[in-house]
Amino acid sequence: MTEYNFAYLDEQTKRMIRRAILKGLAIPGYQVPFASREMPMPYGWGTGGVQVSAAVLTPKDTFKVIDQGADDTTNAVSIRTFFQRTAGVATTTATSDATVIQTRHRIPEEPLHEGQILVYQVPIPEPLRFLEPRESETRKMHSLEEYGLMHVKLYEDISRHGHIATSYAYPVKVEGRYVMDPSPIPKFDNPKLGDMAAIQLFGAGREQRIYALPPYTQVVSLDFEDHPFEASKADHPCGMCGATDSYLDELIIDDAGGRMFVCSDTDYCEARQATGHKGKDAA
């Protein structure tokens, strides 16, 4: 096999993607169609995020990949290895050291700073998709700012369950205009989307869409005055580092169904443990 270009994609393709990213940044929350390429990993496995990362990476960047908050889950490893091989960029697991962070399903616990780029992998970019399967219709709804259907859905949730029964991929409104899918992050992460110092880019490869949030964008989770949005997590401290402010994974640790809770953000948890924090399950 011959040598590939820096970060795999050819420069023409990167230019096309960068244009889509710039358009996305100019119209926060708007889904920009782009000519997504077949990547050497399957659609649905982060091809959108990978294409966006490939388009923004420079040789000087330090790259971090997380999946479910963890640096060592198999697909995060696979994507990190891909860019090590094709771009030769430095990689890190430390959130603060990374200049580009590709993520699936989480926003790191540690606040991001200016100059960083957070790249989300997005499976279904259309927040209205499960209310209206037709792309031609949903695009019309966005252009007319016709979001009544979404409010009706949330209202029906409340009347049926007493709560909005959406716990991840919780829809948000960007700068009072576009309703946007934040990708399947837990709603615990939603408050971090708004007013973030870093650039947030969202890539959906299979669905051929890119959208973006420039730094310090106003992002509001949809709710009602009498049913305000509430970020939720398991009501426990982390068993390893004792953190009470982080999103937790639940693990089954014995045949009797014994459970423990640990930070899903492995870097956050390890950094806390390194500075002497200890949870009740730590050795």
């Binding site: 991840y168 939720s232 899903s264």
Partner: peptide, 14 residues
């Protein structure tokens, strides 16, 4: 097939 611990966890809570 990929991990969905995080989304599943939030569904568990709900």
């Amino acid at each position: 097939k990929l991990p969905h611990y995080v989304d599943f966890q939030s569904e568990l809570e709900l």
